[in-house]
Design a protein around this nucleic acid. Structure first.
Lengths: 141, 141
DNA sequence: TTGCGTGCAAAGGTTTTGCATGGCA
DNA sequence: TGCCATGCAAAACCTTTGCACGCAA
């Protein structure tokens, strides 16, 4: 387990607690700050960014690339290795993020590594498309 | 083929020509503007953004989500349907974009549609990872 | 005491919007 | 003429950086 290399401060504890509160659900910096505010906790946005980045480096958090100018998403890693084998489906219509746990995708990673020499970072890769619900809604278009 | 719905203006022609000049190579707004400048063409950045967005809607262009605060990438679609059946691999290390034509990935799209009800937009999806070359370089890390 | 952590303010970069002017049809 | 397109300026947005002060060890 990665140990904290620096000091233990009140802010870090508060941020860590809030992050854990999201469980395996992904969140943005905005959502995290809103969550803190709703508990009457005020932490500088700078500190939030720096803490998240630090936690990501320690392997406690996963950072998703931003999509289409939207802000980056973060996700707490409840157990080490968790989510490393699943991909994320991001719906272009409703913006929802789906977790997709599937052996097929494991295979795919292996295939791409073997045949194309490319090591896919599943935790950072986001599939863009349209989810089931939005598909139904938009069938007439 | 999608027809222009609006007027034909000099700027649109110039932008379209520059875009075609990139062939199937992806480019950013910055690169496009630099390209125009090197030909002594000055078009407002606003117009560039609006034109690209319009061309993308007409199916003449493909827009890639921005990655990690980097600016968005665009790609000219030389022939309709081109690239619609292949994915793109974006190397986190060197930033190169690889085209990956592969039946396996077609299957995968089908699988995800069947089993997860999610319609993947291959043309917009970018796999993040590390390419062969960078992998070799970083093996000691 | 030492030096890392915090947070305000400001800068950074990309993209969008308001609005008056310009140009196509 | 009527409406769409243009482009300047400014805003919007997310994120990072500089710097002085505060706090953990």
């Amino acid at each position: 387990m990665a140990r904290d290399s620096g000091y233990n401060t009140k802010q870090r504890e508060l941020i860590k607690a809030a992050v854990k509160g999201f469980g395996s659900k992904h969140f943005t910096v905005d959502e995290l700050v809103a969550n803190l505010h709703s508990n009457n906790i005020n932490v500088g946005i700078t500190t939030v960014y720096r803490s998240l980045e630090r936690m990501a480096q320690q392997g406690m958090l996963r950072k998703f690339a931003s999509v289409e100018g939207k802000s980056a998403c973060w996700q707490y890693i409840e157990s080490p290795g968790e989510c490393s084998n699943h991909f994320h489906l991001h719906c272009k219509e409703c913006g929802k993020l789906f977790h997709c746990e599937c052996e097929y995708l494991d295979e795919m990673g292996g295939h791409i590594m073997e045949h194309h020499g490319f090591a896919i970072d599943a935790s950072a890769t986001v599939f863009l498309g349209v989810c089931e619900d939005c598909n139904k809604t938009n069938q007439h278009i």
